[in-house]
Amino acid sequence: MAENTSAAAEAYWKANIRLVLWLLAVWFAVSYGAGILLADWLDQFRIAGFKLGFWFAQQGSIYVFVALIFVYVWRMNKLDREHDVHED
């Protein structure tokens, strides 16, 4: 029984880590990627009056950050239920 519980906890934790790593990859890509490392290259493209790299650095990355947290909340709530570790 104890072994089952610890195997289940292990599986939940692995799934959690996988989700977090995916989200952090996006987090890195929009801010450090598009907003800093590739910004000069992206500046050749435009949306409205913005150069794209500049837009990511001053606007786009922030919108993506907000979206990332809500995706995390939604996926984690689902994961909690699937692995039967949710509250109440």
Partner: peptide, 13 residues
């Protein structure tokens, strides 16, 4: 802008 908002992603996750 990025530094003072991106930290919340780390905080939440």
């Amino acid at each position: 802008l990025m530094g003072w908002t991106g930290g919340y992603v780390l905080l939440a996750l």
